[in-house]
């Protein structure tokens, strides 16, 4: 598994660059990951990101867009505005989690 440096942190990533170790992530790493894909995180971004982190601990998989909208209460439209084009994958990447597995 490749190791890459995000800011000052050394993290393990998969072939695409998604973090593979849950505990290697912190909010500073999240900020750096977001910056790497051109997103500056605001409080509006943090709400779904923090939800994804917590939900992953409880369910063992990355929440889908639908789950973020219905459970965390962030409207789908807003998620597309915050994380343009591919919100589910971008959120997962910034949150240091695998891509969502679910279809819907």
């Amino acid at each position: 598994m490749p190791v890459t440096t995000i800011g000052t942190a050394e993290v393990h990533v998969d072939a695409e660059g998604f973090l593979t170790e849950y505990d290697e992530w912190n909010e500073e790493v999240g900020r750096q990951l977001a910056a790497a894909i051109g997103i500056e995180l605001t409080e509006a971004h943090w709400k779904p990101i923090r939800f994804l982190r917590e939900d992953f601990v409880q369910h063992g998989e990355t929440a889908t867009l639908r789950r973020v909208s219905t459970v965390a209460g962030v409207p789908i439209k807003e998620l597309f505005a915050l994380f343009p084009k591919k919100p589910a994958k971008k959120m997962a990447y910034i949150a240091g989690l695998p891509k969502p597995r679910g279809c819907v």
Binding site: P2, V3, T4, I37, K86
Partner: peptide, 20 residues
């Protein structure tokens, strides 16, 4: 800097989300 499993430097790995 990014290293592979063998310790050799590798380019930074950032997923391509097709934004460009």
């Amino acid at each position: 800097m990014t290293t592979t499993g063998t310790g050799r430097p590798a380019p930074g790995i950032v997923p391509d989300f097709g934004d460009d």
